[in-house]
């Protein structure tokens, strides 16, 4: 099971220059707030897709049962 710190590191590696705040009470359900330059000019759907794409097929809904996500452009 990934920890909040691991999920944060994955997001920040996956979207260079981004800052992620990730919390989890159980290492299964995560809440993330991601701020990135890369989100500029992207729709919310496209911003969320960038974050989801970091996690492998089946990981969301699997080991990461839920990822509540807020994205913001820096």
């Amino acid at each position: 099971m990934p920890t909040a710190d691991e999920v944060k590191a994955r997001i920040e590696e996956g979207i260079p220059g981004s800052d992620a705040e990730v919390t989890s009470d159980d290492n299964v359900h995560f809440t993330a707030r991601v701020v990135a330059n890369d989100f500029a000019n992207l729709s919310l759907v496209e911003q969320h897709r960038l974050v989801y794409a970091i996690f492998g097929e089946g990981e969301l809904g699997g080991s990461i049962h839920a990822l509540a996500l807020t994205t913001e452009t820096r």
Partner: peptide, 25 residues
Amino acid sequence: SNWPTIPQLFVHGELVGGADIVGQM
């Protein structure tokens, strides 16, 4: 839809988003 999670909301054939985006909007 190229969207990994459920729920998914579509309006006029377009994906609007999942729970977080719908809540924010």
